[in-house]
């Protein structure tokens, strides 16, 4: 479980996050939704400590993450998987080496076990026979999937995904969404997903937090989000003709 308490963050005096407080529960797929530029990525980077929030606290299972030393953070980080919005694959390594990398760094597995694990993770994101290609040699959507495979290869207890299915076709997007939801339940991990895709929300959103201009505007389940009277949430949810038709 991750608890966020009054987190604020600004860049050069421009506030991007304003007093965000929420809880991301274990075994659930927690979604952060909001318009482009609303601060989802910044919030996620604050959660994992890539950005330091100006004020507020972040607690991992009641351990203060914000004030931890590098060594203490490392213990948590080895249990953490993250998918970056841009993939962030190591482009000097092959697909397989990318997926193995977290294991190579910290696990005591044999090489064979690591390769088995990599193949297993790659298979779960529907990738086969690409092990020895470099990131520059695969498509954008494939990169995203390799990045997901890398994020889950060390069996994390906390999984962060920044736009896991942007750039994927609807079919693959659903496969990825379901994969994230499945491993969340299967291994009882705390998952946080940034998205602006309403399909994902309806598919896997156990808990949905709506960020509006850097503020936590609304939170609830995917069923509640369809019925809420909150104007900004409605504007977001019913932005498309399809959703409006469905509502009527």
């Amino acid at each position: 479980m991750i608890r966020v308490v009054n987190v604020s963050k600004s860049f050069d005096e421009v506030p991007v996050l304003k007093n965000v407080s929420t809880v991301f529960e274990k075994g659930k797929t927690n979604l952060i939704i909001g318009q482009s530029g609303s601060g989802k990525t910044v919030l996620m980077k604050c959660l994992v400590g890539l950005l330091n929030s100006d004020s507020g606290q972040i607690l991992y299972d009641n351990h203060q993450f914000s004030t931890m030393s590098f060594a203490e953070r490392r213990v948590i980080r080895q249990k953490l998987g993250m998918l970056f919005q841009g993939g962030a694959l190591f482009d000097s390594m092959t697909v397989e080496e990318n997926v193995i990398f977290p294991l190579k760094m910290f696990s005591t597995m044999t090489l064979e076990e690591k390769i088995d694990r990599a193949n297993f993770c790659l298979k779960r994101v529907n990738l086969e026979n690409v092990n020895h290609l470099y990131p520059a040699e695969i498509s954008g959507g494939m990169k995203k999937r390799v990045a997901i495979a890398r994020a889950i290869s060390n069996s994390p207890s906390y999984l962060f995904c920044d736009e896991p299915n942007s750039g994927l076709d609807p079919l693959t997007a659903i496969v990825i969404d379901n994969l994230i939801s499945e491993i969340t339940q299967e291994f009882d991990i705390t998952t946080v997903v940034n998205t602006h895709d309403m399909n994902s929300v309806m598919e896997i959103g156990d808990k949905v937090a709506f960020i509006y201009k850097g503020e936590l505007w609304w939170e609830g389940s995917r069923f509640e989000i369809l019925k809420t009277e909150n104007k900004e949430v409605n504007d977001f949810v019913y932005a498309s003709e399809l959703m409006r038709t469905m509502k009527q």
């Binding site: 980077k45 994992v48 890539l50 953070r73 490392r74 213990v75 980080r77 080895q78 953490l80 993250m82 970056f84 962030a88 694959l89 190591f90 990398f101 977290p102 760094m105 910290f106 060390n154």
Partner: peptide
């Protein structure tokens, strides 16, 4: 950042 996240 990806390296940092892994604790490297």
């Amino acid at each position: 950042d990806a390296l940092e996240i892994m604790g490297v």
